[in-house]
Design a protein around this nucleic acid. Structure first.
Length: 820
RNA sequence: GGGCGAGUGGUGGAAUGGCAUACACGAUGGACUUAAAAUCCAUUGGCCGCAAGGUCGUGAGGGUUCGACUCCCUCCUCGCCCACCA
């Protein structure tokens, strides 16, 4: 229990007030110190935060405080990603307007940030649901529209029947709605898209420039963009004018094509089947499988289904006619929606061919074991030697890919192409609580953008929250009905709002001039402060949020609004805190309230434990007992200060104990500094400080009366090194040690290289067996003694037996081995 | 199915080629106390041993090396991301 110990309540309140007064977290625009922009992903405002949330902000705050101590002019802003579904869903349920609940939650969250001691420059707060912000989200939409990067099309979209809204592909998890877990269905709606696919290549290539991003995140982005090089090949449909183009990365298998299969949404289907005798059946098949596809985004192991169209296509490589099928396993949006099927060398085609009795023709031979098409149990997808492929026989398949591509291009039957998995970004939401899309529809003049000077398009406040499949804005006539900006006649507003990922794709630019009502961001300021030096957030945003932000930044760059191409120079993704092995959530009933713990132990204890629990990029299991340990440690240091104040320093005789303490002190500075600069492994930084504290206790108990000056330095060092982690109590201790200024004005200590123990010494020497045993016999000798022996006996070369040892291994002062 | 990561005491974890288990939690015993709390001290991987000490030990098996938790190969288990992307 926490009743006996330092009085954290007073101390924490006292120093928070001080920091506020001294403007510790206010960025100084006039400063000449080097800048450091440390950005936390701005949160969605939710009511009750737990220790898992706390971890994110505590990590960020520790970095910020460390950088302040290192003399940087730090920008550490905070804001709120305040539009979004939960507030609107709550409004439907309990009738409280989203704006009211959201602003209330923001208030609560600000208080909780405070309670963790997390410091921000609140004068720069950004709240995405306020008109002063979403005005500029709308402005960004208009810029994209101007550039032809925003367009509308009818699209088959994921529809959540429960939320009554459209979901992005990414919001569909295992065929279910990410938020409410209802089964997702398909719907055709006119939707707004942003043309992120225009930037596929650059979004991919520029990943390389992001040296300080976790490889894992870059890989996820890379896979998401999904670039593949291949060939588009034209197949003429027999007895028809239609030419079907398919995309393949395996042009080497072209001679093995035994059928072609197109998606059930392929645009040429009506033309292809218009005279088919079983047209009705085919149409039924198409409708059935489309419905299944929608329901079965689960993916896993859907049964492959297909139907013959009655048509044949001509393989341009060998002029053979092969049947044309419609299949449920062809992805409409990828490539051309048509696939040349090579059952012998593609597992999916193999399964399909087996099921429907289609031909299997081997054209790549396995060099290890000859392939017989008849006996194949699965497709052979590896490289090999070309067979049954006309003039390409005998080539290695990898070479044949190039040769056949050349052949296609020369004969104008195909061409090299690059395709991406990345799809355009669907931003329309049939929802109220988001930024209205600034477009107008006039019966006479058609669709047109809202004039920039008329922004923002304000969200009306008086709204009925009754889901009916369209935006609630439809029921706000004063919003919908306006005069056409061109002809002045009757016109309607767009009633869809934007995906909140649009809001969050540019907020980091707004922090530099949050109040500016003339422009979204200040070119000069953002060019000075961005890219963000350190971005910190959850790995769940590793793909979408980061990709969208990178996209918007590139567009702004292309339009000349900013001078940098990537928003975030360095990225850190932290793990979440679990309890009983699962993520904390109200519904699971495993939430550890941070307010309660802070009440009991104070913010510093909660911070220390949170940082100590595990390396911050990993998930970590919460333990209430562990908190007690952190509390004990802080009190242990606290007592050290109080004792230290009573000590009389005797400036005399530094002995062996002083030397050890000095070594430990400097080793600790080195360790903590390296962890702060590099991996953010606060857990090992803190444990090394704990070791130093233990060392100090040892020192004290061994020399209770005569205490050297080394003790003072060690204690002072402990306090400074602890400051980023437990700022309040560190300040208090710093003051007790007689310092007048805040510890955050103190200089972070440099370590003295000479004071450290040299870890390993490698000496190139010669040696024979006799000396070896002699040295081994003195393994416990000090480092100097071993070295002396080496010098005396070996360098003089008296023992050389013709053998040349590679090195002597001495680890931490002891001979470990002799390499001959 | 593909990609990535991880597997170390009772627990969280440390060590990235050099004393395996730092630091902390928990546990056991002790000191202090009328008692409790707090604090301090000792022990805490397994096995053998009264002890000194010995021996085995980082998911399993093999390899490289004077030396492997660490590097390489095969396999097992778990986690995350993607998933019919031709």
């Amino acid at each position: 229990m926490a009743q006996e110990g330092y009085s954290f309540k007073e101390i924490e309140a006292k120093w928070r007030k001080k920091w506020d007064e001294m403007g510790l977290f206010k960025m100084d625009p006039a400063s000449s110190r080097p800048k450091y922009y440390c950005l936390m992903m701005f949160p969605y405002p939710s009511a009750a935060l737990h220790v898992g949330h706390g971890r994110n902000y505590i990590i960020g705050d520790s970095v910020v405080r460390y950088k302040i101590m290192r003399g940087y002019n730090v920008l550490s802003p905070m804001g709120f990603d305040a539009f979004g579904l939960p507030a609107e869903n709550a409004a439907i349920k309990n009738g409280i307007h989203p704006e009211i609940s959201t602003l209330n939650n923001i208030k609560t969250m600000r208080r909780q940030f405070d309670s963790w001691g997390a410091g921000y420059d609140w004068s720069r707060e950004v709240v995405s649901c306020l008109p002063g912000y979403y005005k500029w989200t709308q402005w960004i939409f208009l810029q994209l529209y101007k550039k032809g990067l925003a367009y509308k099309k009818k699209a088959s979209v994921n529809w959540c029947p429960s939320c009554q809204t459209v979901l992005a592909n990414e919001q569909v998890v295992d065929g279910k709605c990410e938020r409410c877990s209802s089964q997702v269905t398909l719907r055709d709606l006119e939707q707004w898209f942003l043309k992120i696919t225009d930037y596929s290549e650059r979004l991919l290539n520029d990943l390389e420039s992001l040296k300080d991003w976790p490889e894992r995140v870059k890989l996820m982005q890379k896979n998401w963009i999904g670039r593949s090089e291949g060939v588009e090949i034209d197949f003429k449909v027999k007895d028809s004018n239609v030419i079907l183009t398919c995309f393949t990365t395996r042009a080497d298998t072209i001679y093995g094509v035994t059928y072609m299969v197109i998606s059930n949404e392929h645009p040429d289907i009506p033309e292809l089947i218009k005279n088919a005798p079983d047209k009705k059946e085919i149409e039924k098949f198409i409708n059935d499988t489309r419905r299944e596809n929608a329901a079965d985004r689960v993916g896993a192991d859907i049964e492959k289904k297909g139907m013959f169209t009655g048509k044949f296509v001509i393989n341009p490589a060998n002029n053979k006619a092969v049947p044309l099928w419609i299949g449920n396993y062809v992805v409409t949006e990828y490539g051309t929606g048509a696939v040349m099927a090579v059952p012998a060398h593609d597992q999916r085609d193999f399964e399909f061919a087996k099921k429907y009795g289609l031909g299997i023709e081997a054209v790549i031979d396995n060099p290890k074991e000859h392939l017989e098409a008849a006996g194949m149990k699965e497709a052979y997808v590896e490289e090999g030697i070309m067979i049954n492929s006309g003039k390409f026989n005998g080539l290695a398949s990898a070479d044949a890919i190039e040769k056949i591509a050349d052949f296609m291009e020369e004969n104008n039957i195909g061409r090299r192409e690059v395709h991406y998995k990345l799809r355009d970004w669907l931003i329309s939401r049939q929802r109220y609580w988001g930024a209205p899309i600034p477009m107008v529809y006039c019966d006479k003049c058609g669709m047109q953008p809202v004039d920039e000077k008329d922004l923002p398009v304000m969200l009306p406040k008086d709204i009925k929250f009754k889901p009916h499949g369209e935006s609630p804005l439809k029921d706000a006539p004063e919003f919908v009905n306006i005069k056409c900006p061109s002809c002045g006649g009757n016109a309607r507003r767009e009633i869809d709002t934007m995906d909140t990922f649009v809001d969050s794709s540019w907020y980091f630019l707004r922090y530099l001039s949050p109040e500016d009502d003339k422009k979204p961001f200040d070119k000069e300021l953002v060019n000075k402060w961005l890219p963000v030096d350190q971005y910190i957030g959850g790995v769940e945003h590793a793909i979408l949020h980061l990709l969208y932000s990178r996209f918007i930044v590139k567009v702004m760059y292309d339009m000349g609004y900013i001078g940098f191409k990537e928003p975030f120079a360095r990225l850190f993704t932290q793990g979440m805190i679990t309890k009983n092995g699962i993520k904390m959530s109200k519904s699971k009933g495993n939430v550890v309230s941070s307010d309660g713990l802070i009440e009991k132990y104070g913010a510093d204890t909660v911070r220390l434990y949170t940082l100590f629990i595990s390396p911050p990029e990993k998930d970590a299991e919460w333990s209430d007992k562990g908190v007690e340990g952190a509390w004990r440690f802080i009190n242990r240091v606290w007592r050290l200060i109080e004792d230290g104040l009573r000590l009389k320093v005797e400036g005399s005789k530094p002995d062996e104990k002083d030397k050890t303490l000095k070594q430990k002190t400097h080793a600790t500075i080195k360790k903590v500094t390296e962890d702060m600069e590099g991996t953010f492994h606060f857990n090992t930084a803190i444990s090394s400080i704990m070791e130093l504290v233990n060392e100090i206790y040892d020192y004290k108990s061994s020399q209770p009366s005569a205490l050297g000056s080394q003790l003072k330095e060690a204690i002072r060092t402990v306090v400074i090194l602890l400051a980023p982690f437990v700022p309040h109590v560190a300040e208090e201790m710093w003051e007790k040690l007689g310092n007048k200024e805040s510890i955050f004005k103190a200089k972070w200590p440099d370590y003295d290289r000479n004071a450290l123990v040299q870890d390993t010494i490698e000496l190139p020497i010669q040696i024979n067996g006799k000396l070896r045993s002699k040295i081994e016999a003195s393994l416990n000798a000090g480092e100097d003694e071993i070295r002396a022996m080496v010098m005396k006996d070996i360098v003089v070369n008296k023992w050389t037996g013709g053998k040349e040892p590679k090195k002597i291994i001495i680890v931490k002062g002891k001979l470990v081995n002799i390499v001959i």
